[in-house]
Simulated scan of single mutants.
Amino acid sequence: MTAETDKQPPQKLRKRDKRALTLMAIAALLTFFGGVVLAGYAAINYKYERGTEIEKGIFQVPKGAGLSTIADKLEDEGFIEDAFLFKLVTKLRGNEANFKAGEFGIEQNSSMSAIYDVLADGKAILYPFTAAEGLTSAMIVRSLDSVSTLVDDDPAIPAEGTLLPETYLTPRGMTQSQLLQKMALARTQLLDEAWEKRDPTIPVKTKEEAIILASVVEKETGIGMERGMVAGVFTNRLRKGMKLQSDPTIIYGITQGEALGRRIRRSEIDRRTDWNTYQIPALPKTPICNPGRDAILAVLNPSETDALFFVADGTGGHAFAKTLREHERNVAKWRKIQRERGLR
């Protein structure tokens, strides 16, 4: 083969060189713009991760709020400097749908990244609400109106005895109905668990009867250590077919659980109602309040005792008796204390 055949035409060489130069130029441009993009992204991330001079405070994420609303609200309230940047990085990281409704504590000088973590993964601020043992359902519903963090959605009054009195932690924006549902679920769960561990010899045969008796125990004593004994007395009376003769059941028949404000009259003791256990030889028709955990557990596993009677002893507790004669002496002592204290 001759040297002439090895040589390429100059025109072909020029075309090849142009293509190579074009590819090199494109590669250089891509490298340049890639560097610009990376530098920009690095700068954006630096601003997103950098702490800013803000005071600590509380930020509320409204229910159903989207990323734009949250970002603008954060900027308006001074927690971030750039809502657009917050939205951009959140979207780029695929975190747009991770926010939770509620109130959140933002620490001083937090970065946008830290603020995002608090709003997406942190624990919302919770406010305690305590329902006292022995309140009626109507009283509990009324007490919800004093809790400013709850939304008043005008809930219906739950059936008596269906709520569990205790302290509940609630986020701002929870409705009163939602809290009542939570209280009802707590009572159901407690009763279901306790029922499985009950003394099989107790005279109450259903969960509903257990709550009714527990409500009477709850109203008879506010002393935790006495609930088992009071439950034991009522258990003994039920086994013997005796009337419970509980004063709070008379009051419930008169006022539906509201304070009577005076001593019970003889005519009220003699008046038959669906709750007056001086007149009916059985449990009241319904619970007379919402009993607490201790009263429910006491009824399902009452203290072993021979006592059939009890009366106030003047110290906040009760004097228990096995016989009517002993009980009458205790009653006489209590009447004397009442006279000395000017009680009528």
Rank of each mutant, 00 (worst) to 15 (best):
A3H: 05
P10V: 01
R16G: 01
D17T: 11
D17Q: 15
T22P: 00
I26K: 10
F33V: 13
G34Y: 07
G35S: 09
V36I: 13
Y48I: 00
E49S: 15
Q60T: 15
K63P: 04
L67Q: 12
D72G: 06
D82H: 13
F84H: 05
F86K: 03
F86W: 03
L88D: 07
K91C: 01
L92R: 12
G94H: 06
N98R: 13
S113L: 04
S113G: 12
Y116E: 06
Y116Q: 09
A124Q: 14
I125C: 01
F129D: 00
G134E: 06
A138C: 08
A138F: 04
V151M: 08
A156D: 15
I157E: 13
E160T: 05
T162H: 02
E166L: 05
E166P: 00
L169I: 01
R172G: 12
T175V: 12
L179N: 03
Q181Y: 03
L185R: 15
L185C: 01
L191N: 02
D192R: 08
W195E: 08
K197G: 03
K197V: 04
D199K: 11
P200G: 05
K205A: 13
I211W: 02
L213W: 07
V217H: 06
E218K: 10
T221I: 07
I223S: 06
M229C: 03
V230N: 08
F234E: 00
F234H: 01
R237D: 10
M242P: 11
D247W: 03
P248G: 10
T255C: 11
S267A: 14
E268M: 10
T273Y: 00
T273V: 08
T273Q: 07
D274K: 13
P281F: 08
A282D: 14
L283H: 02
P284N: 08
T286E: 02
P291K: 09
D294I: 10
I296D: 02
L297E: 15
A298Y: 01
N301C: 06
S303P: 03
D306G: 07
A321M: 08
R325C: 00
K336S: 13
R339K: 15
G342N: 10
